[in-house]
Computed example of a mutant assay.
Amino acid sequence: MGRYKLKKQRRSRFQADGRPVDEACLASHVAAVADTVDDHGRVTFWDDPALQLGQVASGIDPESGAVTVDPGESGQLPAALFEPARALMIKAPGEPPREQQAEAAIQLGMERFGLGFAVLRPADGWALHRLADERLELRSPDGGVFSRIAVPFNPAWISSALSTGFVLCLYGIQLGVRTPPGMPAGQYTDGARLEEFRRGRGLGFTAAGLVSFVNNRG
């Protein structure tokens, strides 16, 4: 079961892989992409210099609006990044462009992860499964596989995920995971990854949620 099905659009301008296409071409593109759940990804922590997620707020002053944090409390919380290889962009009249795979995740209960202060809530029904072969499988509330990534074994990350019981899962086409075409891998620095990550957040292309971690290894 794929993660996205094309809905009927009226007077929309479609794009596939950054190129304008008609509705028939888009339908063909969707068919080729929707059932592909093996994506690019990596695991890391909230204090990763390529993410710079900041601190978890511990309170808000109702009069001044000042936010208080517990420094250092959230730095080593686990995060998993899921970046699809291809985009499904739709631009409807009078609306900003949207990436439909991220939109599907949001419709299923994740949050749109924009810039600035963000509210991160548990993504009800979602689960992140550690498989027997060490791959990570992000499953949506209907039990279907939404995305799957193969990442190097990271004992510290596994320990953190097991102890907290949840992982911040980020899904989007601009997370700073893949090296851009034509760029030497050595030039894709943490700063360049952070710039792309923030660009995707600013454009509304990133979905996020606190997802329950399920360990399928003995």
Rank of each mutant, 00 (worst) to 15 (best):
R130I: 05
V211I: 06
R112N: 11
V145G: 04
K5T: 02
D47S: 11
F205Q: 10
M110I: 03
A102F: 04
R13H: 04
P49L: 00
E99M: 02
A208I: 04
G75K: 07
F45M: 10
L53F: 10
G116Q: 05
D190F: 11
R13V: 13
I60E: 12
G125H: 01
P155C: 06
W126D: 00
L108Q: 12
A32R: 14
L108C: 06
R98S: 04
S163V: 04
R3S: 09
L81G: 02
G218R: 13
E111Y: 09
L115C: 15
A104S: 09
A123I: 12
A156I: 12
I149E: 01
A57M: 01
D17H: 08
G41Y: 02
Y4N: 03
Q107V: 05
F153T: 15
K7G: 11
H129D: 14
T206F: 01
V214N: 10
R3H: 12
G209S: 07
E99Y: 02
Q52N: 06
G186M: 02
L210K: 10
E63A: 14
R217S: 08
E73G: 00
Q55E: 14
A161V: 05
L138M: 03
V43E: 07
R13W: 05
A102C: 09
A57V: 10
A24W: 02
A66I: 03
P84H: 06
L26G: 09
L136Q: 04
P180A: 03
S12T: 12
W157V: 03
G114F: 07
P49T: 06
R199N: 14
F213S: 00
G94K: 07
G172M: 04
A192G: 08
E63H: 13
V33K: 07
A16R: 07
G54E: 04
W46F: 07
R201H: 08
S28V: 15
R199F: 14
P180C: 06
I149K: 02
H40R: 12
S140E: 13
G209W: 00
G144Q: 11
M89N: 11
R178T: 14
D190H: 12
V177D: 09
D142H: 07
